[in-house]
Design a protein around this nucleic acid. Structure first.
Lengths: 331, 331
DNA sequence: GCTTGACGTGCAACCGGTTGCATAACATAA
DNA sequence: TTATGTTATGCAACCGGTTGCACGTCAAGC
């Protein structure tokens, strides 16, 4: 393997160009301060030596490193990758680099990551944070913070309002003649979960439907399978699940138990992460995660560059996407 | 919004503790050099002021920032999130922070990202890189590099050998009586694609089967749907797709065309990213992406910490996972 | 021809740590 | 008691840039 040469420094360029390092520095940051001659002389020397300004040194003296951190509970949850991708693209447009953190749905891990990233980022985006409000507020005093799917007063936040879509789902089921309904919960600390649960309850009450709530800490395919027995035990004819993964697990389990969907039981998911890829294709609540990721980054960058300190609460509405897992109530 | 206080520096801690900054520095890096008394005095002062060493400054003088970069072609492709997650977890265990880059399957973008990250990472992992060999070699002279699913001589690499699994798939189809086979290609620059295509051809030749290759630049659900007509036009009775997403798109399209799977047509995917979530459940080639991510990071960290410069070529074998989309040849 | 101002460049301090070397304090051995 | 070694701490240079200020030069204005 070839030897890794140490990179040339500003001083070497200065010497090669016959100027001081101040001028080299200015040539790269504020060339309009220098004569055109000097600038081109410096660029020529830099080019020849293969000089690239040292990011770390620059960050130390300016206090700006152009990094931001994005922390999510679970990269592998299909809700996040499109969000991550959108955020990353938006960061890139403004020449920011993004640190990605995976908290494993664990507040302690999330806290630890924030600490570790803390020193080298200018701002953070926390998606579906599992931290307590006080911790979030505490972190926000240290550096700019934008939240996704978490509603904390005074902190800029982007919220995907699944309540609108969930309400539509309940109405849809009511219209199909369903009377008894189950809501299958998601992670405990999840703001979206609370929001969805409340929306189901509220709409159901208005429509005179009965609702049971079944808890299910870790939202995923397998746990969806597992809680299906409990769901059926309630005697309900339809279920709304915290997310598509849970719904998909339920679908598989119902199929295995010989319960046909939607003839004998209706299932609604949330987040539309699977497209039409389940069988039957899943009726679900639309997802705005790409917009959420992009918006959060736009917001954060705006705060960083314009020192725009404001209390933004950006809400993205959702709606019901009717596919094949909902039908008239059995019996 | 509350005022963001500037963080205390090493000097303030030194003053508060009645020592010089050298001692404070040592208290945090090599406490065994100091008397227990001094250390606890310093820690007490640091604690009281809320001091945290400045990562940037430390990086500048030591040349080590404890960051690594991971670049993937598409975060939203379900092959990568588990890999990313595993890599991130492994990095975390050794206190490294990870930058995530999304190249959008674009070599230029990939190159740009490497450049942007370059100055602030100690090493890079390129997953399924779309760069040319020379570019990869060039980058590797600058700083440690580990490749995933890319086989470049002299550069540490972790390869998921889908050839073994793909060969099994071809044998499986032959055993079911299929004579004509299609391989649906993936991205042009993809090493995995080349490997899979060759494996299909080789095994088919040995088993006396006929193979057509259909190209399909962007591997995804929609493009899988789109190329299905071409696949059927070949007269084949079975297809092996570059990845599960493509296979899933084909499944949907076949269903829409009233062609039943596996009775009339057999489909095999690759990477096992969908689990049993398709309908029928997809027969596919197993995926070792979690191990790949973890191994790549272990390798990189080993290189960084032990200066272990070696030409590693780590191969992870795969095998066929038979589910419900393959059956006896029609007619 | 002298003042004034604009412009281009250099000087030196600073960002916040780390580290090789010198030295003081103290313990041990002769 | 003095020489010798060990240990804990301080001094100051260094990492590689940025930036406020001072200074010298040259052209325009009177």
């Amino acid at each position: 393997m070839t030897q890794r040469r140490t990179r040339p420094t500003i001083n070497q360029v200065a010497e090669a160009a016959g100027v001081t390092k101040s001028s080299v520095s200015r040539a790269f940051t504020r060339p309009e301060m220098l004569s055109a001659d000097t600038v081109s002389k410096i660029f020529a020397a830099a080019e020849k030596l293969g000089y690239v300004p040292n990011h770390t040194a620059r960050a130390l003296s300016t206090g700006r490193h152009g990094n931001i951190a994005l922390i999510v509970p679970d990269v592998a949850n299909p809700f996040f990758p499109p969000l991550i991708r959108a955020a990353q693209a938006e960061a890139d447009r403004s020449d920011y680099c993004v640190f990605l953190g995976n908290s494993d749905e664990n507040p302690q891990q999330e806290d630890k990551l924030i600490g570790r990233f803390g020193g080298q980022v200018e701002g953070l985006v926390l998606a579906s944070s599992r931290l307590g409000d006080e911790q979030i507020v505490a972190h926000s005093t240290r550096r700019p913070l934008v939240l996704i799917n978490r509603d904390v007063e005074g902190i800029p936040r982007v919220l995907i309002d699944s309540a609108t879509g969930v309400a539509e789902a309940v109405e849809h089921l009511a219209a199909l003649g369903h009377k008894r309904l189950v809501y299958v919960s998601g992670p405990h600390g999840s703001w979206s979960n609370k929001q969805r649960r409340n929306a189901v309850r509220r709409s159901a009450r208005q429509l005179g439907m009965e609702v049971s709530v079944i808890s299910n800490e870790y939202a995923a395919f397998e746990s969806g399978r597992r809680i299906t027995a409990n769901v059926l035990a309630t005697g309900a004819t339809a279920a709304i699940a915290f997310d598509d993964l849970t719904a998909q697990g339920m679908l598989a389990e119902l199929l295995d138990r010989g319960i046909s969907v939607p003839e004998q039981f209706s299932v609604v998911g949330c987040d539309d992460v699977l497209g039409a890829a389940t069988y039957p294709a899943l009726t679900t609540v639309s997802n705005r995660s790409v917009e959420a990721g992009k918006t959060a980054l736009t917001l954060l960058i705006d705060i960083l560059e314009n020192n725009a300190i404001r209390d933004v609460r950006y809400v993205l509405n959702t709606s019901l996407v009717v596919r094949g897992t909902t039908g008239p109530a059995a019996g």
